[in-house]
């Protein structure tokens, strides 16, 4: 049975190391663990008990500006030090003229953006000497000059670069609600062999006057609609490991473990149904 993983977040470090609950892996946000000091020492302890997933949030692989070589060196050092089971980044950008905007900013889905991503993914995969997974983003706006549907864009990026995909089903759902793009159509466009990981997370429903926007804040339990998508995803992407994300208003570890157990339960139920 493939168990779900959770994020490695500071409020849980001591309790996780003490209790050592059964989990598939721990996901580490790369930029929080670059360099030495106490955090590196604590991460080394975690690595003894769990497989590690390195999740980059700042390489800005959607940027026209080239990948920052120093940042990539730090990233590679962290990968070398932790020997992770998964390495991932985002279909997004966050850096402009050397300034880090600290967000996952949206790209238009165009041939030009595809070429930029493939160039930058090549650079990272060449440096790390391993394929990475690229995560589909949640977005709050669309560009009128986008020409490629999201699923086709992700599939083509994977085909051209040789990267795998990290399918965030909460992000698919957020985009479906925000832009009316059917999540299941995007999933159907992906080659099952390319999806190496699935993210599930909570979102916030923001009322903005007459309009409603779903905000991907990773600050609550997973919604029923997202679990529905997740059940379909584990049937289609049987090799993909699952991660429960929770990054804001971080709850007691018990709450997070309960979400991970729910993910395991959904996967087991779907495997049983499809085995029969």
């Amino acid at each position: 049975m493939m168990l779900a993983g959770i994020g490695w977040r500071a409020p849980h470090h001591a309790e996780l190391l003490e209790r050592r609950p059964a989990l598939g892996f721990l996901e580490v946000h790369a930029e929080n663990h670059m360099g030495g000091g106490r955090r590196a020492a604590v991460l080394e302890q975690a690595r003894r008990d769990y497989p590690i997933s390195i999740h980059g949030v700042g390489l800005s692989l959607g940027s026209v500006e080239p990948v920052d070589g120093v940042h990539l060196d730090w990233f590679a050092q962290l990968v070398d030090a932790t020997d992770p089971v998964l390495v991932s980044e985002h279909v997004a950008w966050c850096r402009q003229d050397g300034v880090y905007l600290n967000d996952l900013l949206p790209l238009p889905y165009t041939e030009e953006a595809l070429a930029v991503l493939v160039r930058n993914i090549d650079r990272v995969q060449g440096r790390l000497k391993r394929p990475i997974l690229m995560e589909n983003p949640s977005t709050y706006l669309e560009f009128t000059h986008s020409t490629i549907p999201e699923g086709a864009f992700l599939a083509e990026m994977a085909r051209r670069s040789g990267c795998g995909l990290l399918l965030d089903v909460n992000n698919l759902y957020v985009n479906q609600r925000n832009h009316g793009r059917p999540a299941r159509a995007a999933m159907a466009a992906l080659d099952p062999a390319t999806v190496g990981e699935i993210h599930v997370a909570g979102h916030h429903v923001a009322a903005l006057g007459d309009a409603t926007l779903l905000i991907d804040d990773h600050g609550s339990t997973v919604s029923d609609a997202v679990w529905d998508l997740y059940r379909d995803a584990v049937v289609r992407f049987t090799q993909a490991k699952t991660l429960v994300e929770w990054d804001s208003r971080i709850p007691a570890l018990e709450v997070l473990l309960n979400e991970a157990a729910k993910a395991d339960g959904h996967r087991a139920a779907m495997e049983l149904r499809h085995a029969g």
Binding site: E142, A211, L213, I215
Partner: peptide, 20 residues
């Protein structure tokens, strides 16, 4: 070139500005 369908461009962009 933000698509304003359902919510205008400024309010959509404001989500990113606020998060930043």
């Amino acid at each position: 070139g933000i698509d304003p369908t359902g919510l205008n461009a400024e309010r959509r962009l404001a989500v990113y500005r606020n998060h930043h």
